[in-house]
Design a protein around this nucleic acid. Structure first.
Lengths: 184, 184
DNA sequence: TCGACGAATTGTACAGCGTCCAGTAAGCTG
DNA sequence: CAGCTTACTGGACGCTGTACAATTCGTCGA
């Protein structure tokens, strides 16, 4: 349904984001172009720019949106279990969205609200592990890096490197990191 | 100097690679287009395709080329020192080429000859650490993942996260990984 | 109720990209 | 000298993200 100029399609940041999610789900990262998103909304490509600054901003939003599927760890949980749990859940989530892994890696995680919530929850648990505020930030990053990295390995379908194996390796790595960081 | 069709410019895979390196050094990853490389060689863009399959293949070659600056560890060195040494040297190297870090991450390292040489040397050292052939492959990957990951963190110029600090963190992480893997 | 205003959306366009195609000229091999 | 192979050209295709100006709508103040 082409629209004559000025007519409203009722777009919004959320609508654009939803469309982006749809397009991404159907055509993957490669098929995720501004034109494709616009087409999905039945709208001219540039209309998107009223609601989204950039393609990069849109992708950022998409990345954080995906992170919304993650439950932040219970602050009262056993810290080690809680931290291991989030990171493994992240690993599993990324396994369902392999295309996104390089993007997260390039951004070293994400910076949206969901990411911040997760980060804050992790910091609480780290504090309960006796890790001071100064170092907890970098421990969080180290955990994320390892998780993303192992997720990246899991996307390469090397038959000798099954996701299950890598998941176990990640688990061991996380424990080493956490115990090491807590001890210092 | 435009050339009439058929005249030879004397290109070669190496020449293209060298030009790519130049363009990358001067204009960064963003400026590294086939057209730019061709222009640097005084040649039509498509001429490159006689020597290089793809842009991706060219970038792959460039990535491995950069790795050529790395000395493989001495097989007779103390294994832990040797392994730590290569990975830290890699970290330092990546610090000099921040643009490339996401690319290495996306490819989980690299697959060219230089990368293979390094990998083989690392496997030897791991064997001397008592790590069997089956697991050494994945330990190598874990080391690479951590190194690339910390290098990625170092590219984000967060003043609270200096490269020097991250380098130290990486060193600790590597030791945890190696000791943990050797113990099992 | 009317007029003005700002926000939303359009068509058009630009510059750039990677890469394919058909043609041509040079060099090598017989 | 003939013929084949290789290297390169101009041109084009289809795609990308995005800027511009023009248009029309919903809304709000008078």
């Amino acid at each position: 349904m082409p629209r004559t100029p000025g007519q409203r399609a009722g777009l919004s940041h959320d609508a654009v984001l939803t469309a982006a999610r749809t397009v991404f789900a159907e055509r993957g990262l490669e098929g995720l172009s501004m034109r494709a998103v616009a087409k999905d909304l039945g709208v001219a490509p540039n209309a998107l720019y009223s609601h989204v600054a950039d393609k990069e901003a849109l992708v950022d939003a998409l990345l954080d949106d995906v992170l919304g599927a993650l439950d932040p760890p219970d602050p009262d949980a056993e810290p080690l279990d809680g931290l291991r749990g989030v990171m493994l859940a992240t690993f599993d989530l990324l396994g369902r969205h392999p295309d996104l892994v390089p993007l997260y890696l390039a951004r070293q995680g994400a910076r949206g609200t969901h990411a911040q919530v997760l980060g804050a929850a992790m910091t609480v648990l780290l504090a309960r592990l006796g890790i001071d505020e100064d170092t907890s930030g970098r421990v969080v990053r180290a955990l994320i890096v390892s998780t993303l990295g192992f997720a990246a390995l899991a996307t390469a379908d090397d038959p000798a490197l099954t996701p299950a194996h890598l998941r176990a390796d990640l688990e061991a790595t996380l424990d080493w990191l956490l115990l090491g960081a807590a001890r210092v």
